[in-house]
């Protein structure tokens, strides 16, 4: 395992037109730890996550990966070169709610693609490494399948293998289990737990409070673009002080009682 990255988010603001989507966000993500982002839908969780690999540009503030600013040359300055940005992104894995596998490639080709085009490996070696990555997520018997022939849980595990095969130092997950049938959620969470146990820095947007409670080292709660609180899961999920967190958790529990 390569060393794990830290992420430092300082006074980050993000606008969509006039809409203020992220308001002065400050958040420290320690290396090798799991940070869960929770909050109501539309609160800015995805936006914040996507600022970390600059898939979404932030308008002010700083996002530092291992102390290095991403997206801009200097805070508030010029954009960083596309080459440097690609280089930084290649060490940050991302997993999407809709998997976003490439449908015209097999599972193995999906995983090998980044190794070939970004890492410059030769085809045989990339395919070999892809096979190993798929083996680690329990899909060695599904390597030749196209995504359409895989279940949602299997597709999401391929997507995780695709990111992990690049040897990232940081993994971003945007609601990785929200598109899955309930019985398939467990297999994906298990793969994520194994990654966390291996010492990967992980930032996970999730509605799985069980995962947040048991796997996260810290939980950050967002509401209407504000970071309302960050704390250990036991404290923020069991004895929240802020009424907005209390009301969010109450709604969550009511929905899950039935």
């Amino acid at each position: 395992m390569v060393e794990a990255s830290s992420v430092e988010i300082r006074k980050v603001n993000k606008y969509y037109g006039d809409f203020h989507a992220l308001k002065d966000i400050d958040l420290s993500i320690p290396p090798g730890k799991v940070t869960c982002l929770i909050g109501p839908s539309g609160s800015g969780k995805s936006s914040l996550l996507r600022c970390i690999n600059f898939l979404e540009e932030y308008d002010s503030g700083e996002v530092l990966i291992d102390g290095k600013l991403i997206g801009y040359e200097t805070p508030g300055g010029r954009r960083m070169s596309r080459r440097k940005l690609r280089q930084m992104r290649s060490t940050i894995g991302m997993v999407f709610q809709q998997f976003n596998l490439w449908p015209h490639m097999t599972a193995q080709e999906n995983v090998a693609e980044g190794l070939r085009r970004v890492r410059g490996l030769r085809k045989a070696e990339a395919m070999e490494r892809a096979a190993q990555a798929l083996d680690r997520v329990g899909l060695s018997d599904r390597m030749a399948n196209h995504p359409a022939r895989l279940s949602g849980g299997q597709q999401q595990r391929v997507a995780i293998a695709r990111a992990v095969a690049m040897d990232p130092r940081l993994m971003l997950f945007d609601e990785p289990t929200s598109a899955l049938d309930p019985e398939l959620v467990g297999e994906v969470l298990n793969v994520m737990k194994a990654l966390a146990a291996g010492g990967m820095t992980m930032v996970v947007v999730t509605h799985e409070m069980g995962f947040a409670a048991h796997v996260a080292d810290q939980v950050a709660f967002l509401d209407a673009g504000e970071l309302v609180g960050v704390d250990a899961p036991a404290r923020i999920l069991r004895e929240p002080e802020d009424p907005r967190i209390q009301s969010f958790l109450r709604t969550y529990h009511e929905r899950n009682v039935i």
């Binding site: 690999n53 898939l55 690609r86 280089q87 930084m88 992104r89 290649s90 940050i92 894995g93 991302m94 999407f96 809709q98 976003n100 596998l101 490439w102 449908p103 015209h104 693609e113 980044g114 085009r117 970004v118 997507a159 695709r162 990111a163 690049m166």
Partner: peptide, 29 residues
Amino acid sequence: PRGQTEAAIAIGMRPRDTWTRIILPQAVA
């Protein structure tokens, strides 16, 4: 879907590879 390109960008792929390997093969088919 927008996510097709985003997955390529997130992994650090160059625009040229994103076009020739991800977008065009699907669009042509």
